[in-house]
Simulated scan of single mutants.
Amino acid sequence: MNSYGQEMFIDAHSQAVWPEVWTLYRRALQIIGRPIPTLIEWDTNIPPLGILLEDAQKAQHFLEVIHA
């Protein structure tokens, strides 16, 4: 919680994308109303390539479903 009593997420770029962040991402795509380039960034604790590709596919899926 921040000083205003609101829940806050901090992206350290060192762990998997949280489900709540995927929810925010989907909502942002709906609000923006058009497909936008998306970057899933890892600075440390970089996972195996398969996990990175799964995240990329998940983001692509959301782009395609919301902007079909």
Rank of each mutant, 00 (worst) to 15 (best):
L63R: 11
I32N: 04
K58W: 07
N2E: 11
P19V: 06
T38R: 03
I46D: 03
I10M: 11
V65G: 07
W22F: 13
P37R: 02
Y25N: 04
N2I: 05
Q57I: 00
L63C: 06
S14C: 07
I10P: 01
G50N: 13
P48E: 15
W42M: 00
L24V: 03
R34D: 01
Y25V: 02
R26V: 05
I32H: 09
H61G: 03
T44F: 11
V17P: 02
P19G: 13
I51A: 15
L53F: 05
W18L: 10
I40P: 00
E54W: 06
I31D: 10
A16M: 07
G33P: 00
T38V: 09
W22N: 06
H67D: 05
P19I: 07
P35T: 01
S3G: 02
E7T: 05
I66L: 15
P37I: 01
N2K: 09
W18A: 13
K58S: 07
I51M: 10
A28F: 15
L39T: 05
Q15K: 12
L24N: 07
L24R: 10
H67T: 04
M8K: 13
R27L: 10
I40H: 00
D43S: 12
P47A: 08
L29D: 01
F62L: 12
H67V: 03
R26P: 00
N45W: 05
S14E: 09
Q6H: 10
L29W: 00
I66Y: 09
L49Q: 08
L39Y: 08
W42L: 00
I51W: 06
F9H: 11
I40L: 06
A12D: 08
L63I: 08
